[in-house]
Design a protein around this nucleic acid. Structure first.
Length: 492
RNA sequence: GCCGCUAUCGUCUAGGGGUUAGGACGGGUGGUUCUCAGCCACCAAACCGGGGUUCGAAUCCCCGUAGCGGUACCA
């Protein structure tokens, strides 16, 4: 409210900032939607305003309850809470009143064209290289014509009559421009079944619920002059607009459910073990930056620093590598207890935990894994062998470290046999003692440490990578280790 | 086809009339180490093209070009 640094005209607005996110419940929340929500939410928080959730469900055929709840879930998971909520299907009366007004003032008219006719008109317009695809033929229907359509049983749509003067669009991100009225379509604002359409309901609600700033994706840019025209015809005061650039795939195309499936679903990332903090931090940097050095932002910092004036104009590519980097950063930020809490559901889902494991042991495992997690899901390949001796010996690792000739394998068997004996006879089973004993053995016999260790690692874990091997040995415990080594020797 | 938007390393971006065009992710090399990850050091990597304006243009203007978005009785 006292913002002088924003660079937008927000500072001039006396009233409270009110922004909204208006998803249509026709699927899950996707990355682009999450970013729109986040930008709006941050803008609201930054200005001490209100963030409103509006469910744009005027398309009854495609809207589902299930989808609505998925969107709620995803938003809540991200920590994007809303102060008010509206559902368009419950507000039908409001739209009907405005439509009646539009009809009465002559700013809207009934259109009796059938979908087939419209398609023909469109095809013709295109062939003629026309700017508009509807020729406005129903603007001036004689009463006889109307009557015959009605007796034919045709149900009309209602179209808005576009003005013949330019429409000025001011955009906080893209700047201002005038739209040539010749390019404007007499949009259908009410379907023949009586349901109002997006361009009508959207602007009416924005005005009705007193939205001060409409922050949405640039796919809506062409809708803006149409919506302004509707508001003008109704003599309504329009909000400010800010169109934010699209989120693109690696090929530079808009990310969409249609083309990318659940690759764009926020919930998918949640299931894979991405942290909401990482998602937020990642997504906010798609199109927004603070300065030339900061990449990591806490939510509080974002609220403090977010500014529409620093939103770029061009689309940004979704780069999973960067998300992964941020995610591992935020996972590593968690202390061992919190990280253990975060990882337990993943062990459970994998069926690795049967409630006999004690907390201290689990925390030790997480401690040993250290900074090796990119996603929480990574805990599975990193730690499966702690919970079960039933694993495959990874072929590539076997070939490299156990050897691919009979001679080399004999050698490995010998090493493992010796190591087994050392571990068996060690008076205590702690890292220092074992390490000293093993090093003594390898150095004395001129065996490369790495060779012995990797041979043992594969015997114990099936893989050639992972935490410090002495951590693993101790965490597995003497009994288990003494079982796994002979098994490996037999398998060799 | 028509309408619109955009254009800095592969990616996210900083900058913006005079800079060695900066950072980060990713990539590469070396070091540390029982492996991997990490960490440390270093390297490669960009102003779409052409015209102006100007002493000077990546930056301002124009024109191209390319990419993308929209073009529904979807939102």
């Amino acid at each position: 409210m006292n913002d002088t640094s924003s660079g937008t005209s927000v500072s001039a607005v006396k009233d409270q900032v009110r922004v909204r996110m208006a998803p249509s419940p026709t699927g899950y929340l996707h990355i682009g939607g999450a970013r729109t929500a986040l930008f709006n939410w941050l803008f609201a928080k930054h200005h001490n305003g209100r963030f409103i959730l509006r469910i744009d469900d005027t398309d009854a055929a495609r809207s589902t309850d299930e989808s609505m709840h998925e969107i709620y879930d995803a938003l809540k998971w991200l920590g994007i809470n809303w102060d008010e909520q509206y559902v368009q299907s419950e507000r039908r009366g409001i739209y009907d009143d405005y439509v009646a007004q539009l009809l009465a003032s002559g700013n809207a008219y009934h259109c009796y064209c059938t979908p087939e006719e419209l398609e023909e008109i469109r095809a013709q317009a295109r062939a003629d290289k026309q700017t508009r695809s509807y020729d406005r033929r129903c603007r001036h229907l004689t009463s006889e014509a109307v009557e015959s359509f009605v007796t034919e049983g045709r149900k009309p749509t209602i179209r808005i009559k576009m003005p013949d003067t330019p429409i000025r669009v001011d955009d906080l991100v893209l700047g201002s421009r005038n739209i040539d009225p010749d390019t404007l379509e007499d949009e259908v604002i009410v379907r023949s079944n009586g349901m109002p359409n997006y361009n009508l309901t959207s602007i009416i609600d924005d005005v009705e619920i007193q939205i001060t700033h409409v922050v949405r994706g640039t796919e809506h840019l062409n809708n803006t002059p149409k919506q302004i025209a509707i508001a003008n015809a109704l003599d309504l005061k329009i909000p400010q607009f800010a169109h934010i650039p699209l989120v693109l795939d690696s090929g530079g195309r808009k990310m969409s459910k249609r083309h990318h499936g659940d690759l764009v679903a926020v919930n998918r990332y949640r299931e894979q073990g991405y942290l909401p903090e990482a998602m937020l931090n990642f997504v906010v940097r798609l199109g927004w930056s603070y300065d030339d050095k900061q990449e990591i932002f806490s939510v509080d910092e974002l609220v403090e620093k977010f500014d529409l004036a620093r939103v770029g104009k061009s689309g940004s590519v979704f780069d999973i590598k960067k998300l992964e980097w941020l995610n591992s950063h935020y996972i590593n930020q968690l202390d061992v207890a919190a990280r253990t809490d975060a990882v337990i559901p993943f062990w459970q889902k994998e069926g690795l935990l049967d409630s006999t494991e004690d907390r201290a042991w689990l925390e030790s495992i997480v401690e040993a894994v250290g900074e090796r997690l990119t996603t929480l899901q990574d805990i599975i390949p990193q730690t499966r062998y702690f919970f079960t001796g039933e694993f495959e010996y990874e072929p590539k690792a076997v070939k490299k470290w156990w050897g691919n000739s009979e001679e080399k394998r004999d050698n490995t068997r010998q090493i493992l046999t010796n190591v087994l004996q050392i571990l068996e006879e060690s008076p205590t089973f702690d890292i220092e003692t074992l390490e000293a004993a093993i090093w003594k053995y390898t150095d004395k016999n001129n065996i490369k440490r790495v060779a012995a260790m990797q041979a043992l690692r594969i015997a114990l874990t099936g893989t050639s990578f992972g935490p410090s091997l002495f951590d693993i040995v101790v965490l597995l415990g003497r009994n288990e280790v003494l079982k796994r080594i002979p098994k490996a020797i037999t398998h060799l």
